[in-house]
Design a protein around this nucleic acid. Structure first.
Length: 434
RNA sequence: GGAGGCUUCGCCUAGUCCGGUCUAUGGCGCCGCACUGCUAAUGCGGUUUGGGUUAAUCCCCAUCCCGGGUUCAAAUCCCGGAGCCUCCGCCA
């Protein structure tokens, strides 16, 4: 949630942010009114409580003769306090509900517009050309025995898949590469829970308008996460972190679940858009003044990873109307998908400033030693299924084999190419005694 | 799933039986000052977190795991819940 002081002191800034997002501007005035109402209610209740406290002390000190009268007064005050507290609760709940509905304030440099208005920042790598008919990742994956969509559908329904043989090994290779790189960069590797409580979901801003996207396990009041960001952010909820030595960074591994409710008919083929995939996610906690620099660093690590995979890509600055609830700014990296002749999102990094921290009560000590909300940032290091899809397409060869980038070979038996029908025995146990 | 124990202001801890100067004790740590060639030790003072109010200080309210209740008054009594620990059962 956003800083209420900012709303009080600079409501126009917040109104402008709402306008940029295409969100309801009048919420800001409703919030201001609710805030004023709450403060009045708090003051009324506080004052009454003070009086009641004094009255209560008086009861104890009263002589037997004056006692009944004093007690009567105290009783009357107790009733008034009860009423005032009820009003306070109501005002507080009203404010909170409105507060939750306002998304993060967008960064001033965010491009205006909606989904189609992302601004390209740079393009890296050559768009490859092929002197043969390109296949899509599913054709290639099926020929390799790497992807089995039909059986995925048989067992779990549409948008589910099996990764088999080289496909399964590719998942592990990508995971190893991602985690290894992250650890080398100073990230703490984490295996995070994929089921979380409602507070974690709400705290990261995924409930509310994105409710349709989320799997819910009603019986146990738990949610399946769409990204390990949820668990990683929740990890330090209600804590005061020591960030004096710089950002605290985690590389989280988890399965991710998405209902894809609004995407009927979109990417129905293959494993680009699925209900479940595994992902290595970067997550940073840092001082708010460091957030922008940290955002660039996360982007940098994402780019380096794609470069290791030898995938051509472009970086885009997402427009205000397409930002998530928690994000003040977001950069996506879109990699080239030859079968589509287009760049498609492969990773995404968001600067959530102090928005999630306020909800989750994640704080750090500022220069004066006072606890203040920390900034949180997240970025995809590797969304595995989609990355496999991209790898297969970009690195496909005329004979149906697939070039293996050097960075992945250590985990694929040193092989430079995946070939239909190849033996996996040598791949499965690299460097181990026979 | 069953039985029992525990949860106090960074950490440890007193207080809970028997409600009221609990405005929560003491230690450790931390900060400031004093003393001292330096360090250490010692002494004195300070040190929960929110909210309200304010130019700022002062001050006020809340806060003893969370939520209800009883009462003029709850860390303390009652009910519900969460987390941790021990044992039993079941399962990997």
């Amino acid at each position: 949630m956003i800083d209420l002081r900012l709303v009080r002191e600079n409501p126009d800034l917040v109104r402008a942010s709402q306008r940029a997002r295409g969100a309801d501007e009048s919420l800001v005035d409703a919030l201001l009114a609710a805030d004023a109402g709450r403060r009045a209610a708090v003051k009324a209740a506080d004052d009454l409580r003070g009086e009641q406290k004094a009255a209560s002390q008086a009861v104890k000190k009263a002589s037997p003769e004056e006692r009944p009268a004093v007690l009567e007064k105290a009783k009357a005050l107790a009733a008034q306090v009860k009423e005032a507290e009820e009003a306070e609760r109501t005002a507080d709940a009203g404010l909170h509900a409105l507060h939750l509905r306002i998304p993060n304030v967008v960064h001033p440099d965010v491009p205006p517009g909606g989904e189609d208005d992302a601004v390209e920042i740079r393009t890296v790598g050559e768009v490859p050309t092929y002197d043969f008919q390109v296949r899509d990742h599913l054709q290639i994956g099926e020929a390799l025995g790497a992807i089995d969509m039909e059986r995925g559908a048989k067992v779990s329904g549409a948008r589910f898949y099996f990764l088999t043989g080289p496909g399964a090994l590719l998942e592990f290779a990508l995971a190893q590469l991602a985690i290894t790189r992250a650890v080398a960069a100073g990230f703490i590797p984490v295996i995070a829970p994929a089921l979380v409580k409602p507070e974690a979901m709400e705290g990261t801003g995924f409930t509310g308008e994105h409710d349709e996207e989320i799997y819910r396990v009603e019986r146990d009041d738990l949610y399946l996460v769409g990204t390990s960001e949820v668990a990683l952010a929740g990890m330090h909820a209600k804590e005061v972190l020591d960030l004096s030595a710089g950002p605290r960074r985690y590389a989280g591994w988890s399965s991710c679940f998405r209902r894809e409710a609004g995407s009927y008919g979109k990417d129905t083929r293959g494993i680009i858009r699925v209900h479940w995939f595994d992902k290595v996610e970067m997550f940073s906690f840092c001082a708010p003044e460091e957030a922008e620099a940290e955002h660039r660093r996360l982007l940098q690590w994402e780019e380096e990873f794609l470069q290791l995979l030898e995938l051509p890509y472009r970086v885009v600055d997402i427009a205000a109307g397409d930002l998530g609830t928690s994000a003040a700014r977001k950069f996506d990296i879109e990699a080239w998908f030859p079968s589509q002749g287009a760049y498609r999102e492969l990773t995404s990094t968001s600067d959530c400033t102090t928005f999630q921290s306020r909800r989750l009560q994640i704080r750090h000590r500022d220069a004066d030693g006072k606890p203040q909300p920390a900034a949180t940032l997240n970025g995809t290091l590797c969304a595995i299924a989609r990355t496999i899809a991209c790898l297969l397409e970009v690195h496909q060869q005329a004979d149906g084999s697939v070039h293996v980038p050097a960075a992945l070979r250590p985990w694929l038996g040193g092989h430079a190419v995946l070939t239909p029908g190849m033996s996996l025995a040598a791949v499965a146990a690299p460097g181990l005694p026979a």
